[in-house]
Amino acid sequence: MNIITLEHGNGGEYTHELVRNLFYKHFQNELLMQQSDSSILGNIGGKLAVTTDSFVVDPIFFPGGDIGKLSICGTVNDLAVVGAKPLYITAGFIIEVGLRIDILERIIISMANTAKEANVKIVAGDTKVVGKGDVDKIYINTTGIGVIEDNTLYMNSSNIVEGDKVILSGTIGDHGMCVMSKRAEFDFDTDIESDCSLLHILVTDILEVSENVRIIRDPTRGGIATTLNEFIENTQMSIVLNEEYIPVRSNVKSMCKMIGLDPLYIANEGKIILIVSTKDAEKILEVMKRNKLGLESRIIGEVIGDNRNKVYLKTEIGGTRILNMLEGDLLPRIC
């Protein structure tokens, strides 16, 4: 069986072979093929957006995606939500000795395909191999570079005003619960799929029709409850959400109920949540619904100016509860 050994990480012949046969082969582009210590990029006409992220996910393959696709989507999405056009990505791999090379190749191919779809180039990379148990199979660190072509664009929570609307692009909790349902410690069999996807086109569509988008995020770890708290953290505003309007797939809801978790705090990898002016809300909604990743978009709440800096949720039976940021770990509970 072909597996990764420590020699694949020592910079010698094995490393070169791995780089040639996997990384160059699949990531193939003129910038990467400079094959130098640094890749020299051309001039970028506009403000730069830079983001970095590390991907550690168990299991590495899950319904709807894998760690490779996730790493590209996550990086592209982080660039997209600030209004940047994603251009380049670098990727660092930390691999546990013993990982099957065909598995590594599947991950690389998945990254390459996703990058192609997003029209971004993987321009630099690095591989390290560590001992058994030092990492769990494979970790990927990425840096993304994008360009903000519109010089006037600056989305920030300071733009939020009373009456603004909160829009969510679809169901919540799919990624987090999908991954959790596949963990070895659970014996759950569900058809929950990760929503892992590229959101740059959806964001571009939105920014094309409106100049009154206050802020956009992809609510990953901590779920929409945490992202919404971050939105208003440094403002005098509060947000009121209507639980009835927040879509949750029934299998996600069920699994959350079984182990005592709340979908509002579960990670998404293919959703955006944004705050927009009342005036433009319907127009934005319309354009979002035309994108296949935004079919279920809805206005789920609005901004109020009560100076209390809270996220309130009107519950399905009409009560009110305060949503704080995620506290503690997401662990299955019995009570």
Binding site: D262, L313, K314, T315, I317, G319, T320, R321, C335
Partner: peptide, 28 residues
């Protein structure tokens, strides 16, 4: 678990002021 459900659905907020709910010792 009743305490959690009462919080989750915002039930306290729906009750008249003269009804006070107290959480008992049933969280193991």
């Amino acid at each position: 678990t009743h305490t959690m459900a009462i919080m989750k659905y915002g039930i306290k907020d729906l009750l008249p002021q003269n009804i006070k709910l107290i959480s008992g010792p049933g969280c193991p």
